[in-house]
Amino acid sequence: MTPPTQMSLPRRPFDRSIALMRFIVVLLFVLTLYGFTALETGGVNMADAWSMLADNAATLFFRPALANVTVSELLVSLGVTIGLGFLTTVFGAVIGFGLALASALNIAPVWLSVLVKGFTAIVRAIPTVLWVLIFAVSAGLGSVAAVLGMTFHSAGYLIKAYAESFEDVDAGSIEALRAGGADWWHIVGQVVTPSAMPALISWTFLRFEINFSTAIAMGAAAGAGGIGFDMFMASGFYLNIREMGAFTYAILIFAVIMELIATRLQTRQTHR
């Protein structure tokens, strides 16, 4: 073996994309710093404002208390919001499953797949809140518009997610069943669905989380009721930060429980 003649690393050749990326990061950093100095604060004393913010946050998180609703009313409200999230996820999942079968390229004809994928791309491009407002035109602002709008966007989202899960199914096992004389429904029921099941479950849970938080926002924004509406009343109408805190904790506890269930379900699915 000959000893190395050069001890230093050769220079890395100039890479335009990396250089551009660095330039953009530095530029954004400089702009952010400039933004702080140029901030128009009006008559607000920034030091006072920060301490008040800390004060309010402390009240919100450390001194939660109910005032205008009882515990049972809180639970009912939470139930309404969960219900809204759950219902729209179930509707979205059923529609999503059906149309995903029509758009997964390994089991659907290309023309149908392109048609469905194009349509769902448009549905997803419009945010959930806008769908709710669109349906509010005919259904009026309220729970009906919220259910319709959220279902629409959930379906669009789940069609894409499910279809991609279907497309990941091993082409060989589909071929094996076709070779044995299985028809299209057999392949869907016996290969595609069981193989994609863990992915379907995790996508559905993820969408339920999204729908739950959207349902909170819709409670206030679209008057769909539930804990979102109660929060809106507590903050905007009664100006009661402590009650806001109680609602926040109720939502947080439910989110944590849901997360635990999702994790358990997923580990069970992958380990079976």
């Binding site: 091993d170 096992s173 290969v191 069981p194």
Partner: peptide, 11 residues
Amino acid sequence: MIFQHYNLVNR
């Protein structure tokens, strides 16, 4: 028909 990669549904 049988295959090189068996083509079973593993789940």
